[in-house]
């Protein structure tokens, strides 16, 4: 027995916006009888305002599939197409007070149907059709591109999670190695992009660094010093050493070392994490 939230039960037993919409100008269909769940979403979009003025659904599926469909129609009514497209599957789950983790694919189905309906409205092919990719899970017809997209968006790290969100791997299990490989690749990409982000300052040239240090000093540091009757001048950059001279009241201020530490922290944050500040006599 699944532990469904009260909101899920409410939307299952009292579904909102059930049925077809005669004058719909956008229809999205996902899933199939063979898969065990399917959703047909009807939207009426005002061409002038791009607002979704009405939404209806027909769903074949379990309690959480019906509830996700009902929630989706409530969430998108009154929104513009652009606003509606910002809704994620997690938003649908959150709206319902959460879904059992094995049922997250129901929220993904809602999002897919919405994207399909809007693509239909715009005269584009359904996003799922664009996800040609390589078929990974033959039981549920899931491609590698689809798995990548959902895994990235929901930060999935295990085969079980991928199955919960996309159904891929939930049948015969023969594709588990392939899913593991995709997850490895996503993990490698993530590591690479993190490393890149961390390495970014290192690729600055000395001239770029000096220019950036000067900019930070002028904009972030000097104005506050000047308010107290002091000032500061950048003399030189020697490797990671930023050589400065205090002017005005700062030069005799007993807390200038504290000020120096503050400047160093600022430069480390905004220019390069290895910079150190050194006070010199001019």
């Amino acid at each position: 027995m699944w532990e469904y939230s009260e909101r899920v039960k409410d939307h299952f037993f009292n579904p909102r916006n059930v049925g077809s919409l005669e004058d719909a100008n956008a229809v999205g269909e996902v899933g199939s009888l063979a898969c065990g769940d399917a959703l047909k979403l009807y939207l009426k979009i005002d061409p002038d305002t791009q607002k979704i003025v009405d939404a209806r659904f027909q769903t074949f599926g379990c309690g959480s599939a019906v509830a996700s469909s009902s929630a989706l129609t409530e969430m998108i009514k009154g929104k513009t197409v652009e606003e509606a497209l910002l809704i994620t599957n997690q938003d649908i789950a959150d709206y319902l007070g959460g879904l059992p983790k094995e049922k997250m694919h129901c929220s993904v189905m809602g999002k897919d149907a919405l994207e399909a309906a809007i693509a239909c409205y715009r005269g584009e092919p359904a996003p799922k059709e664009l996800l040609d990719g390589e078929l990974v899970c033959e039981c549920f017809g899931v491609t590698d591109k689809e798995i990548r997209e959902v895994a990235r968006e929901n930060k999935l790290t295990t085969i079980e999670e991928v199955t919960n969100y996309t159904k891929a791997g939930g049948g015969c299990g023969l594709c588990h190695d392939k899913i593991e490989k995709i997850l490895d690749e996503i993990r490698a990409e993530l590591r690479q992009s993190q490393a890149k982000a961390a390495a970014a300052p290192k690729v600055m040239t000395n001239i770029q660094k000096i220019a950036r240090i000067q900019e930070v000093i002028d904009k972030e540091i000097r104005p506050s010093l000047q308010k107290d009757g002091g000032d500061l001048e950048l003399i030189d950059l020697d490797g990671a050493k930023v050589k400065i001279v205090f002017r005005g009241l700062c030069s005799s201020c007993p807390s200038s070392s504290l000020t120096k530490a503050g400047i160093e922290a600022k430069l480390q944050e905004l220019v390069h994490p290895e910079l150190v500040v050194e006070e010199v006599t001019a």
């Binding site: 037993f13 065990g36 599926g61 309690g63 939930g170 049948g171």
Partner: peptide, 26 residues
């Protein structure tokens, strides 16, 4: 599963061969 939920609401206990009730997807 939908049928079982509706039955359950009435206090009727049965079971299903549906994928959704098994915890697996098959």
């Amino acid at each position: 599963e939908s049928i079982l939920l509706k039955l359950d609401e009435l206090g009727i206990c049965a079971s299903s061969g549906s994928a959704c009730t098994s915890g697996s997807l098959e």
